[in-house]
Structure formats: C-alpha cells, structure tokens
Amino acid sequence: MGQYLILIYTDEASMAAMGEQEVGALMAAHQRFGGTHGAALRGGGWLHPTATATTVRRPDGRERDDLAAGEDALVTDGPYVETKEALGGYYVVEAPDLDTALAIARQVPEPFGGVEVRPLRPAMQDLQGS
C-alpha cells in the first residue's frame, strides 16, 4: 500500500470565467468524488489562483552553507513556475498500486486541464502519519 499525490492542473482563465452555477456544479462534483473515494482519500485541497502565490527562493550565486533559503531569501510575487495550466488543487490517496491510483485520478472532476499522479516516498508518508 502506498500513497499517491494527485496534482490537479487547470486553466485559471477558464476557471475564473465560470459562472456561479458552474462553480457550484464543480464543487458538487468534488463532493461526490470525495464521497465515492472517501476510503482512499488521505487529504486534499483547492488552491487560490497563482495571482495569490508568493515564491521564496535562495538568491542566485549564494554559497550553499545552509539547506534553507535563509533570511536573505528572494521573495517574489507569483508561482515558482509560470505555466499555462497551473496547479489548482490536490488530493492525497492511499492505493495498493498505480492502476488503482489512476482509476481514482480518472474520476477527479477537472473541466479545464488534467491531473498528474506521483507516488509519495515512503518517508514522507511516515512523516505525515506521525
């Protein structure tokens, strides 16, 4: 049994253009998804758009004497990587194998993009569990 992160990528412009009814329908779809796969779900979330993102990174050329970005880190407005379809949400699922995780991933409601399925390293699972 392992855990998989399902990253939901979406076209933010299309998402923003949705009417109230469509947003309601999408939320209801996610609720149904949660109901169907509740036994496998270990977490999930819906992100605010990338316009609200702030990136913190190590300034270029600084000696790598510390693993953290540190006090003189470069703080900038926006996501780490600009992409047409941006990370908009995620689920963490527990599944015995990739086929099971993919079967769940196929059911994730996402009208303007797609999802990426990544196995979580066991160590990360332990951290989460503790």
Partner: peptide, 10 residues
Amino acid sequence: ATAGVPFRVP
C-alpha cells in the same frame, strides 16, 4: 517499481 505499476493482468 517506484510508481507501483502492478504485475497483473488488468
């Protein structure tokens, strides 16, 4: 091995 592709007939 890492992604958990099963050894199985679908």
